[in-house]
Amino acid sequence: MSRIADKVGRLPVGLRSTVLSLLFGRFVPFLATSGIRFEQAGHTRLTVSIRNRRKVQNHIKGVHAAAMALLAETASGFVVSMNVPDDKLMLLKSMKVNYVKRAQGDMRAVATLTDEQIRSMYTTDKGDVLVDVTVTDESGESPVVCEMVWAWVPKKRPQ
């Protein structure tokens, strides 16, 4: 993932989001179906968004609760994938989403990792990390509070 993001980072600014969204959508086809857009992809920070359109709405014309959870899971998962070495497999260990208020309009999720968290992915064979992820709506408020814990393990099991 990081190699793709690094290459896309060399493209003109206006193309980056579209190209990232298309390429990452090929790895995880459901992302393309949901309409999630990758706005920024870096090793310490990743931003995704979803428009409040009919396909992702609930019965009160807001972004569906499941789509909000998908937004947080996508941002946190991809920022981890930008850092997990190729010899390790990453897995979502736990996901906690508390809906605290009604959302307004389009949604955005920003996931960040610290340098220490990234370092542990390279120096520890297996472990987990609580990824800081903030989901906001058009008003700038956070209608959901999320906790995403991602784990990594060696791809090959010891014999």
Results as ranks from 00 to 15, higher is better:
Ile4Trp: 01
Asp6His: 09
Lys7Asp: 08
Val8Gly: 08
Arg10Gln: 14
Pro12Gln: 09
Ser17Trp: 09
Ser17Gln: 12
Leu20Gln: 04
Leu20His: 09
Leu20Pro: 03
Leu22Thr: 10
Leu23Cys: 04
Val28Phe: 11
Val28Trp: 06
Pro29Ser: 08
Pro29Leu: 06
Leu31Gln: 04
Thr33Ala: 09
Ser34Thr: 15
Arg37His: 10
Arg37Asn: 11
Arg37Lys: 15
Glu39Val: 08
Gln40Ser: 09
Ala41Lys: 04
Gly42Thr: 03
His43Trp: 02
His43Tyr: 01
Leu46Gly: 03
Val48Gln: 04
Ile50Asn: 02
Arg51Ser: 12
Asn52Val: 10
Arg53Leu: 11
Arg54Lys: 13
His59Ala: 12
Ile60Gln: 08
Lys61Gln: 15
His64Met: 04
Ala67Cys: 05
Met68Pro: 01
Glu73Ile: 07
Thr74His: 02
Ala75Met: 12
Ala75Phe: 04
Val79Asn: 11
Ser81His: 12
Ser81Leu: 13
Met82Lys: 02
Asn83Tyr: 04
Asn83Glu: 03
Leu92Met: 13
Lys96Thr: 14
Arg102Asp: 06
Gln104Ser: 09
Gln104Arg: 13
Asp106Thr: 07
Ala109Pro: 07
Thr114Val: 02
Gln117Ala: 05
Gln117Val: 03
Met121Gln: 03
Tyr122Arg: 12
Thr123Pro: 02
Asp125Leu: 11
Lys126Met: 12
Gly127Val: 06
Asp128His: 13
Val131Arg: 03
Val135Ile: 11
Thr136Trp: 08
Asp137Trp: 12
Ser142Glu: 15
Glu147Gln: 14
Val149Arg: 15
Val149Thr: 14
Val149Ile: 10
Ala151Phe: 04
Ala151Trp: 02
Val153Ser: 01
Lys156Ile: 11
Arg157Ile: 07
Pro158Phe: 07
